[in-house]
Nucleic acid binder design. Sequence first.
DNA 1: CGTTACACCTGTATAGGTGTAACGGTGCTATACT
Length: 486
Amino acid sequence: MNTQIKTVLKAKFGYDHFRPGQLQIIQGVLARQNVLGILPTGSGKSLCYQLPTYIQGGLTVVVSPLISLMQDQVIQLNLQGEKRVISLNSTLNMVEQQAILSNLSQYLFLLIAPETLGRRDVLARLQQIGVQLLVIDEAHCISQWGVDFRPSYLQLGAIRAKLRPKSTLMLTATATQRVQQDILEKLGVSATTQKVSFSVDRANIFLDVIQCADDQAKIDQLKVLLPHLQLPGIIYFASRQKAQAMAQLIQQELGIPTAYYHGALASKDRYLIQQRFMTHQLQVICATNAFGMGINKKDIRFVIHYHLPTNFESYLQEIGRAGRDGQQSIAIGFNSPADYQRQLALLHMGLPDATMIKLFYQQPNKFANTGDAAFELLQAYQQNGFDQGQVQELLQHKLVEKQQELTAFNQFIQSQACRRQLLLAHFGDELTRPHDEKCCYQGFDQQPLMRLKQIGLYVDQQSGSNQTALGGQPRKWPQILRHILE
DNA sequence: CGTTACACCTGTATAGGTGTAACGGTGCTATACT
């Protein structure tokens, strides 16, 4: 079998060797086992389901969280010369969708969101055709989004039971022990899954946390740091408004081509900004957590958290966007005493409390058409047969879990020990090399520029890469970007 | 917690101060309308 695998690797993908983890995952899939693959970003996860599909034939259904990710995958496969791939989503009208379902047997790969996959007509058709391999891409979404954001992710267990695929492959770059267990339980494959995991450590990313007295101190710190940082980079915020305001400030006061990015932007603007970032027309993106999944830019030199997230997974996902080219990069988090309350507030957002759950189950129509996210969530649970007690317990449990994660993550933020060791420990990993000056910063002094020098990322303001990266025309960009920044 | 929106008050300056409440993130799909 291994000879055949190698032949296909060369013929279809043009490679002579596998990257760590790939072969083991592929062998598991081909042996009709369920596999949970935890591989660092950029280590070739999509090959893990594409290659076995070519060997075993039949339909591979890939569950993907975002339409843009599905489209990326379709394009990537098309570029590899594969035409038997299709994405079923709401960008297509009903006629087009029906055409795809009717001709499903001619495809090798179907990319689909859990919401669409749960549709009766889609499930019925897939049961008819038969699913060889079920892939859950970005599988941490089951745990991260399932309960309180996209309840369809919780239905994947029931969906899988109906589809009865020969094997199920769950892929992610970040999953703590708890999240791993959660994924397997919710999919109903705890007893039958083989785990293939590699260290989530990103050794070329220097970890730094800067303690700031208040919001103004963060802004001051940004203004000091940015002119001396190698570009490009991402700055994360916990609110759209702040992201927008800081993008303007950086653009105007520091003259760095910057745009903001968040969930309220039209999809064509999102696409445009991504493209301009990819092609170096934009050097800094000020974003909420909407920016990230599917961003495949190799040379991002820094990720700054103006606001740190509320858990380890989000943090690791977000800093992991830096340094995919293997070059030295830096992850800087800003923390201020006021942040904890904001983080706490975010945990409760969109979660209906006990009173609302009770009211909803008594008089569901009272909330109809209010556009309320909590209502939509309750409606989804009700439609899937959850009673009041179950919903209450599920959401209460999730809230407690989130609070525990926040507490643990804040200990990490406040720590003066080796942050990499703490981070890795949370993912069940150990340090692969001893702590040194390129690992992380231990302590709370206010000299972050010194740290940049120490790891070789300090840029001299006069002869810096800011100008050279722009081909000597740094002042032309702001005009081009005006409509994005308005 | 920090910021913002807005009702209310004062008492004629139809604006400015004050108190209170709400907000702050992530996306799929279906449906109704232009």
